[in-house]
Amino acid sequence: MTTPTPWKILSSSASFSLLSECWCLATLEPGEEQTRNFVVEVVFDTPFMTIPVVQLGITSFDIDQRDSARLTINVTQISEAGFTAVISTWASTRVYAAGFNWFAIGA
């Protein structure tokens, strides 16, 4: 008989803006409309025993009203110790701030 492993759940929120180091989503070089990314490394307070499932949800954004609102937040590089969140925009959209909640569930 195996001993059951209890589930572990961690969660938090994060916000970034023009004041964040390396924020590049509000600037647009003339003639350049490619995707721009802001990368966030999240480290869990306590690591999981296995790779958890991570869910992100957008909680806020401040986008220039002159252009379409284009914003994505994706999770990549999930490990037992943390994950990477990538906030992106593209074309002529200027993002001044963005926030997200996350939760991780696993053993």
Rank of each mutant, 00 (worst) to 15 (best):
P4E: 11
P6N: 13
K8H: 03
K8L: 08
I9E: 14
S11K: 09
S12F: 02
S13A: 07
A14Y: 08
S17K: 14
S17C: 14
S17A: 15
L19R: 11
E21G: 01
C22W: 05
W23R: 13
A26C: 10
L28I: 08
L28F: 09
E32M: 01
E33R: 05
Q34C: 03
R36K: 15
R36W: 05
V39W: 06
V42I: 15
V43E: 15
F44H: 04
F44I: 03
T46K: 03
P47Y: 02
P47Q: 08
P47V: 08
F48M: 03
M49P: 00
T50L: 12
I51G: 00
L56H: 10
L56S: 04
G57P: 00
T59L: 13
Q65D: 06
Q65T: 10
R66K: 11
R66G: 01
R70H: 07
T72C: 02
I73C: 13
V75D: 07
V75G: 09
Q77E: 07
I78D: 04
S79F: 05
E80N: 10
E80L: 00
E80D: 04
A81Y: 06
F83L: 09
F83Y: 05
T84Y: 04
A85L: 00
T89H: 06
A91N: 10
A91V: 01
R94H: 10
V95K: 01
G99M: 12
N101T: 14
N101V: 13
W102L: 07
I105D: 02
